[in-house]
Design a protein around this nucleic acid. Sequence first.
DNA 1: GCCTCATATAAATAACTACTCATATAGTAG
DNA 2: CTACTATATGAGTAGTTATTTATATGAGGC
Lengths: 123, 123
Amino acid sequence: MTNNDTINNTERLARVLKVLGDSNRLGIALSIGKDSRSVTEIVNASGLSQTLVSFHLRIMREADVVRTERNGPFIHYSLSDPALLEVLFELSRMINGKRLRIEKTPEPTVKRAAELKTGKALK
Amino acid sequence: MTNNDTINNTERLARVLKVLGDSNRLGIALSIGKDSRSVTEIVNASGLSQTLVSFHLRIMREADVVRTERNGPFIHYSLSDPALLEVLFELSRMINGKRLRIEKTPEPTVKRAAELKTGKALK
DNA sequence: GCCTCATATAAATAACTACTCATATAGTAG
DNA sequence: CTACTATATGAGTAGTTATTTATATGAGGC
């Protein structure tokens, strides 16, 4: 592996991180999830204007974060690699830590949740 | 967890992603790695100006991506959560796929490295 | 063909970001 | 205290980005 490859890999990674580093786009990615969603669905879920959603979807498309598929008058968007979600959840866990997770929290036990409520686990 | 928490979690995640979504900052984070590096070391490793490195380090510090510790005249920076590296490597693997890894590849065996050299593993 | 719905694109702009250059602060040695 | 090294900060700026408004394209039904 040449040094140049490393640079390019870093840059490619940075590009994707930047694309996801906008809360509107991140929200869109999370709302697509493992599924496939039409623009209208995304618009409704996000509360953003159709134009703005299309704008962000284009950026995500060009960064190859999402894929499109036409279905009649609809264009359905899905994550190019749904495994992205796991990475995002993991990062979210790291960042939001004891503050719980993004979306429906998948695994915290009742006991753990109780600790969080009392602030006991927050140090 | 209220809906508001979700929004805040998403925003916090986006903020960190944005911080890492600049190739200079990402490079700095990767060059710090599991270690602790002085500003001068980072400057030398990155080839960026001291001012620019300090500028980016401040952004990373304020996003809590890095921590500082003073040692005499030096200020050493380290990743707040070194596990961040694994997440970045995983994402990099997803993105750069068969195109090899970032930095010194941590784990590929000799055999694997040989395959990579011949391009055999690149499909 | 025309109408409607779904989506994309273009242009304009305000806000933000990375960067440079100059300067300041802080630690250590003498 | 002075000199030197290490690091941070402030001001200025060019370039980028998110957003809005207006308009275009494209598919399906009539």
